[in-house]
Measured scan of single mutants.
Amino acid sequence: MKVIFLKDVKGKGKKGEIKNVADGYANNFLFKQGLAIEATPANLKALE
């Protein structure tokens, strides 16, 4: 799953980066902790 990092995550990505991560990692950790959002077309456009 492609995500946009909202904060730096050690060993995974930095704020503003768009990366592929495992679905479970994104859903169970990144999204719940507010560290990333899904890289949907709307979210990508808002990032610009």
Rank of each mutant, 00 (worst) to 15 (best):
Met1Ser: 06
Lys2Tyr: 14
Lys2Ala: 11
Lys2Asn: 11
Val3Thr: 00
Val3Asn: 00
Val3Gly: 01
Val3Ser: 01
Val3Pro: 02
Ile4Pro: 01
Phe5Tyr: 09
Leu6Asn: 00
Lys7Leu: 09
Lys7Arg: 14
Asp8Pro: 04
Lys10Gln: 12
Lys10Thr: 11
Lys10Leu: 14
Lys10Asp: 12
Lys12Gly: 13
Lys12Ile: 15
Lys12Asn: 10
Gly13Glu: 04
Lys14Ser: 08
Lys14Gln: 10
Lys14Pro: 01
Lys15Met: 11
Lys15Gly: 03
Gly16Trp: 09
Gly16Met: 06
Ile18Arg: 01
Ile18Glu: 03
Ile18Cys: 11
Lys19Trp: 08
Lys19Arg: 10
Asn20Leu: 15
Asn20Val: 15
Ala22Glu: 15
Ala22Lys: 12
Ala22Met: 12
Asp23Pro: 15
Gly24Glu: 15
Tyr25His: 04
Tyr25Lys: 05
Tyr25Cys: 09
Tyr25Thr: 05
Tyr25Ala: 05
Tyr25Ile: 08
Tyr25Asn: 04
Asn27Thr: 13
Asn27Lys: 15
Asn27Ala: 12
Asn27Trp: 14
Asn28Met: 09
Asn28Lys: 10
Asn28Leu: 09
Phe29Val: 13
Leu30Tyr: 04
Leu30Lys: 00
Leu30Asp: 04
Leu30His: 01
Phe31Cys: 07
Phe31Leu: 13
Phe31Ile: 14
Lys32Gly: 08
Gln33Arg: 11
Gln33Pro: 00
Gln33Asp: 09
Gln33Asn: 14
Gly34Tyr: 07
Gly34Arg: 06
Gly34Phe: 06
Gly34Glu: 07
Gly34Asp: 06
Leu35Met: 06
Leu35Ile: 08
Leu35Arg: 01
Leu35Cys: 06
Ala36Ile: 07
Ala36Asn: 00
Ile37Gln: 05
Ile37Pro: 00
Glu38Gly: 04
Glu38Ser: 07
Glu38Val: 08
Ala39Asp: 01
Thr40Phe: 04
Thr40Gly: 04
Pro41Leu: 11
Pro41Ile: 13
Pro41Lys: 09
Pro41His: 10
Ala42Thr: 10
Ala42Phe: 05
Ala42Asp: 13
Ala42Glu: 14
Asn43Leu: 09
Asn43Gln: 06
Leu44Glu: 05
Lys45Gly: 09
Lys45Gln: 10
Lys45Arg: 13
Ala46Ser: 11
Ala46Cys: 14
Ala46Ile: 13
Ala46Asn: 11
Leu47Asp: 03
Leu47Arg: 07
Leu47Lys: 06
Leu47Met: 12
Leu47Tyr: 14
Leu47Thr: 07
Leu47His: 10
